[in-house]
Amino acid sequence: MRVFPVYAPKLIVKHARIFLTGVIWVKDLGRLEFEKGRFLLPRKSLPKVKQAILELNELIEAQN
Rank of each mutant, 00 (worst) to 15 (best):
M1Q: 15
M1D: 15
M1K: 14
M1Y: 01
R2E: 15
V3P: 05
F4Y: 04
F4K: 00
F4E: 01
F4C: 04
P5E: 15
P5L: 15
P5A: 13
V6S: 05
V6Y: 14
V6K: 07
V6R: 08
Y7A: 01
Y7V: 01
Y7Q: 02
A8N: 08
A8Y: 08
P9R: 04
P9T: 04
K10G: 14
K10E: 12
K10M: 11
K10V: 12
L11R: 08
L11E: 13
I12Y: 01
I12A: 01
V13S: 09
V13D: 00
K14C: 12
K14S: 11
K14P: 05
H15C: 05
A16W: 02
A16S: 08
R17Y: 07
R17M: 11
I18Y: 15
I18F: 14
F19L: 08
F19I: 14
L20H: 09
T21Y: 07
T21V: 08
T21S: 14
T21F: 10
G22K: 02
G22P: 02
G22Q: 02
G22R: 02
G22A: 04
V23G: 03
V23P: 02
V23T: 12
V23E: 15
I24V: 07
W25C: 14
W25H: 05
W25N: 04
W25E: 14
W25D: 05
V26Q: 01
V26W: 03
V26S: 01
K27N: 15
K27F: 13
K27C: 15
K27Q: 13
D28K: 15
D28R: 15
L29K: 03
L29I: 10
L29A: 01
L29N: 00
R31S: 04
L32W: 01
L32P: 01
L32E: 01
E33R: 15
E33T: 15
E35G: 07
E35V: 13
E35R: 14
E35K: 14
E35L: 11
K36L: 10
K36C: 11
K36M: 12
G37H: 03
G37A: 10
R38N: 06
R38S: 08
R38K: 09
F39P: 02
F39A: 01
L40C: 07
L40A: 05
L40R: 13
L40V: 11
L40M: 11
L40T: 08
L40H: 06
L41F: 10
L41W: 08
L41T: 09
L41P: 07
P42F: 09
P42E: 05
R43C: 05
R43N: 06
R43A: 06
K44H: 08
K44I: 06
K44D: 07
K44L: 07
S45Q: 09
S45M: 13
L46E: 07
L46I: 12
L46M: 11
L46W: 14
P47K: 15
K48C: 07
K48T: 07
V49Y: 07
V49Q: 07
K50T: 07
K50F: 08
K50M: 08
K50E: 05
K50Y: 08
Q51D: 08
A52W: 03
A52V: 08
A52Y: 04
A52N: 03
A52T: 05
A52L: 05
I53G: 00
L54F: 11
L54E: 06
E55W: 06
E55S: 08
L56N: 02
L56E: 09
N57C: 03
N57S: 02
N57D: 02
E58V: 12
E58Q: 13
E58F: 10
L59P: 00
L59K: 05
L59H: 05
L59S: 04
E61S: 11
E61G: 08
E61R: 09
E61H: 09
E61C: 07
A62F: 10
A62Y: 11
A62T: 11
Q63M: 12
Q63W: 13
N64Q: 10
N64E: 13
N64H: 12
